[in-house]
Design a protein around this nucleic acid. Structure first.
Lengths: 212, 212
DNA sequence: ATCATTTACCCCCTTTAGGGGGATTTTACA
DNA sequence: TGTAAAATCCCCCTAAAGGGGGTAAATGAT
């Protein structure tokens, strides 16, 4: 019997694949630092029990039948505001990654992550850090990177960035020491290149393609 | 003499602190997987030699005298487009983190990262992954997280998100099954709450505060 | 040296958005 | 069940943005 029960990391696993779920349970249970307080095949089943088992860390599969993992996130947060939630996924290049991050996940790991690393990442989040497998980190970094193949010229990009800050034609003209009509001209050209017809739309398209 | 020279990871270190720089050099050189082809106290000094030493990975300090690390990034990329650049920093909560990510860093590590982990991260980027220490990962995740204390109501947030996608009043009205005037009303309220007076400005402010 | 691109500027006109006032009805919650 | 907040809709008017057309100087690459 472990005499340091208070130090154990209380884990909970939500994962629909029975084999994987049991794998995590037995491997975590085998480690003297971890204690598995619950394992569930669906978010719904877990949500009923969470206030009772009060885990420190939840391993949450992104692809669940019924309520999706990303949607379960806010629901779990409502019950246990302080819990660390680590998302598990097979698809690293999914929009769900960013949705999950927005919804407040503490970490994001691909399922091919070795179990030793998973344990390490759990300890990381307990210490207050963030957990991210290398595949996800790469995704995130790609997300930040500007697209090198922008159809916009330097000046156009410059002006679109002013637009992104909410500046009016006159303000942009003033800042760049050019005429308002010139600004208008540039914006028109930007619209043609991006095939849009409003500022917000141009920003939306340009952001999606990382031109700005 | 190592007979697997071709397998060695060719590293280069750009770091102004002599002690830290030499620490990295000796520790990396001591590992049979790594080969240190150069170490420099400034970006300028390194840039002169890069095309000759052709490293696989560059450890680049963010805070350098003269040319800053983040500014050196694009310059290095120009000389060696394929090189993996790992940024090193003491301040994890710096805007420079995001600037570096935008400029195409392959990784971002805080200097308190253990040397073993640094070596692991170098191997990660060589494999095509991304490297991020837990502190940086946390920063990045915070960056993504929506602000829970938004002054905007659900409906207002919903409408602002439509605005962010470049939709016009009429389109938003159509999508939400409400009148154009209602949309206008909501947008007016949003403007008052955010203290702005245009769509792009509202988006700019709302994004900065993570309301959307 | 030349051709394409970029940057800059001008006019007329239409559409959309924004500022100011309202009012009414849900909805949430104490 | 009463009240506040949120959501809905209406009007008048002005300011800003967008669509169409155009010209011309600077820049850059071949």
């Amino acid at each position: 019997m472990n005499t340091n029960l208070y130090q154990l990391i209380n884990c909970c696993i939500i994962e629909d694949d029975e084999v994987i779920r049991n794998g995590y349970v037995s491997l975590l249970s085998a480690d003297e630092d971890f204690f598995v307080s619950g394992d569930y095949a669906s978010a719904e089943a877990a949500l009923e029990q969470l206030d009772r088992i009060r885990p420190d860390v939840i391993l949450l599969d992104i692809q669940l039948p019924g309520m999706r993992g990303v949607d379960a996130l806010p629901a779990i947060r409502k019950i246990l505001p302080g819990v660390h939630i680590i998302m598990l996924t097979v698809h690293e290049s999914d929009d769900l990654v960013f949705t999950a991050l927005k919804n407040g996940a503490s970490g994001y790991l691909t399922k091919n992550t070795s179990f030793n690393k998973i344990k390490e990442h759990i300890r990381d989040v307990i210490r207050g850090g963030g957990a991210m497998s290398t595949e996800i980190a790469l995704q995130v970094m790609k997300y930040f990177q500007k697209n090198q193949h922008s159809p916009l010229t330097k000046r156009e990009t410059e002006i679109l960035e002013c637009v992104a800050e909410g500046k009016s034609r006159s303000k942009i003209a003033q800042e760049l020491f050019i005429d308002q009509e010139t600004v208008k001209s540039h914006i028109k050209n930007i619209y043609h290149k991006l095939d849009v017809n409003s500022r917000a739309e141009a920003l939306s398209v340009a952001r999606k393609s990382r031109f700005i």
